[in-house]
Design a protein around this nucleic acid. Sequence first.
DNA 1: TATGAATGAGCGTTCATTCAT
DNA 2: CATGAATGAACGCTCATTCAT
Lengths: 189, 189, 189, 189
Amino acid sequence: MLAVARRIFSQKGYHATSIHDLIEAADIARGTFYLYFESKRAIFDELLDGLVTTLQAQVKRIEVGPDAPPPIDQMNATVDRVLKTLLDNREMARILLREAVGIDSDFDRKLSEFYGRIEAMFMGALNTGRQLGVARPCDAKVVARCILGSVKEVVQWAFVEQDPLAIDMTKMGREMIAFTLKGCLVEGS
Amino acid sequence: MLAVARRIFSQKGYHATSIHDLIEAADIARGTFYLYFESKRAIFDELLDGLVTTLQAQVKRIEVGPDAPPPIDQMNATVDRVLKTLLDNREMARILLREAVGIDSDFDRKLSEFYGRIEAMFMGALNTGRQLGVARPCDAKVVARCILGSVKEVVQWAFVEQDPLAIDMTKMGREMIAFTLKGCLVEGS
Amino acid sequence: MLAVARRIFSQKGYHATSIHDLIEAADIARGTFYLYFESKRAIFDELLDGLVTTLQAQVKRIEVGPDAPPPIDQMNATVDRVLKTLLDNREMARILLREAVGIDSDFDRKLSEFYGRIEAMFMGALNTGRQLGVARPCDAKVVARCILGSVKEVVQWAFVEQDPLAIDMTKMGREMIAFTLKGCLVEGS
Amino acid sequence: MLAVARRIFSQKGYHATSIHDLIEAADIARGTFYLYFESKRAIFDELLDGLVTTLQAQVKRIEVGPDAPPPIDQMNATVDRVLKTLLDNREMARILLREAVGIDSDFDRKLSEFYGRIEAMFMGALNTGRQLGVARPCDAKVVARCILGSVKEVVQWAFVEQDPLAIDMTKMGREMIAFTLKGCLVEGS
DNA sequence: TATGAATGAGCGTTCATTCAT
DNA sequence: CATGAATGAACGCTCATTCAT
């Protein structure tokens, strides 16, 4: 049922998906649906909460210290993990990135908090980087949002408008990291 | 009518706005609404099309040549114009960035084309930059999406979650350009 | 619409009447119903509130004094008015007396208050009667409920189980008053 | 199971009680419920039929004759028995008096017959009383309904709106009999 | 041009009942 | 005997759209 709902929601979006669509696709009766899920909203939540939780678990704070691996390796690993998680859950990823708002105000808040936490992590990394003398002085909030936006947009483009399986995710991740770290100019220009 | 619809859509979102909301706010009769607009979808389209057209007019291809102003000045000017347009139309900007997906598949396609054109423009600029030897070799498609995503996210954050009037748009624009050009690392690190 | 709803509710009761029944009988569309009434509950309320208000207006406190008509005449007049009101609204009377409880707790309370006011009025009359030395000493609360119950039962019987138009209401009213005042025994026995 | 259903029906009323409520309270499975009862309606019937039968058994025709106890003692005894039965089954009494109408037309008819039999008994007693010269000439049908209504209303009031255990039932019964026999006026007034 | 009463397909949800195990 | 997952008809209600005036 969850798998079916995932597919339908992913194809049609939340509002355009009716209970009728879900139960027809799952070939169950109306009542059966409500036996397992409290409401349309509830199954949607259940679906997305799983991805959000998994996603958050993939993102690890970059450690600095004599025994820690080089920061760039940690970043690569995190990005690889995140992209893999999204790829493994590409239907939900599609929903998470598309159905950004407009379900209801509760959902908007939830999503906003999720992105807020990611923003906070990027800001933390930027500040650490500045203390270590490797990061440029900048408005950390704006730059954190830039990074977040880069990731969201690239992933959405790759997953929604392209065939995600045809894309070399590792390569794409490296490009995103390079852009985030160095921008698009050659150094010294 | 359009102004009223703009306000209501911006406040409540597309799905949560009913024809009743629109005609009540505009103080016209139901029939009158349908005299001027084919449907709820149609007025929403009209509203967004206006912004999209205006927005596209603000973005000018960067010229290179002996008589052209320095590229950085052109970029600053374009970003300033775009941000000003968005600020002047912040209600529609809010809608464009928050709610524009998930209305229906026709609309999604339209939006996708709009962003596609912007992506193409960024890619063009990147390629020109590389020919001039100032841009890093990179996957232009990915980097173009990164830049687009940065802008979208920052603007959405500024307009939806903050008070856009309390933000120094020029400064914010400069931060975004700096990030886009140079990333977040100090040069040479 | 109200007339139709009155008939249907009266025939089938509140729970057994569906919106479908109402709109079919009135030959209007679903939407039209909700154009005029907020909900099924609302139209039911509207129907009953009217009768309850009218009914309460018919019951006048019995006046005692040198210029007042004889109490028995006042009682007869009040009973005649009440019975006439019920007869004129016999469909709603049927509902009021049958659908005594079970709509929802709000409605139960409302009805309970209505009967409470009538009880209070009977108790007042009984106490006045005792001060004037014409009423027996008794538990006024119990006797007030007895009188109320007599009226409810007789009216329900007459309206629900008989053809109310075939009954001589004036005669029935006189019987009820006689019973209430003197019981069923011959005096002195 | 019957005891549980009695409690739940009494607390929530027929319509507001779902099969879920019943089986949860009885801690049995859905299927088990339908093993013992044909339907929700059936268990409700069974519950009420029991009380109705018991109740009818408590009401004995008043005997007149040289060896019979004084009629007033017989009446007191019958009323005491009826009130005791109702008190012992106060949950069902609550249902019988509050909710019994409006379930469906079959049930309404059944109830109507029950009250019809009681009415007939009262009419018989009144007619006997008149032959013995102790009862007033009156419309026996109306007076019988008055008596029935008195009892129903007082009992309902006592059981539903008051705490039945806090009421002196014997005293209440005597008041009702006194009212029924002598009304509320002092004799000779 | 403007109106607003009327429409009805469609929604999400409930719950008494069934039946394979 | 007992179970409880599954059913689906029916519910009350919404709202974008139409059309006679």
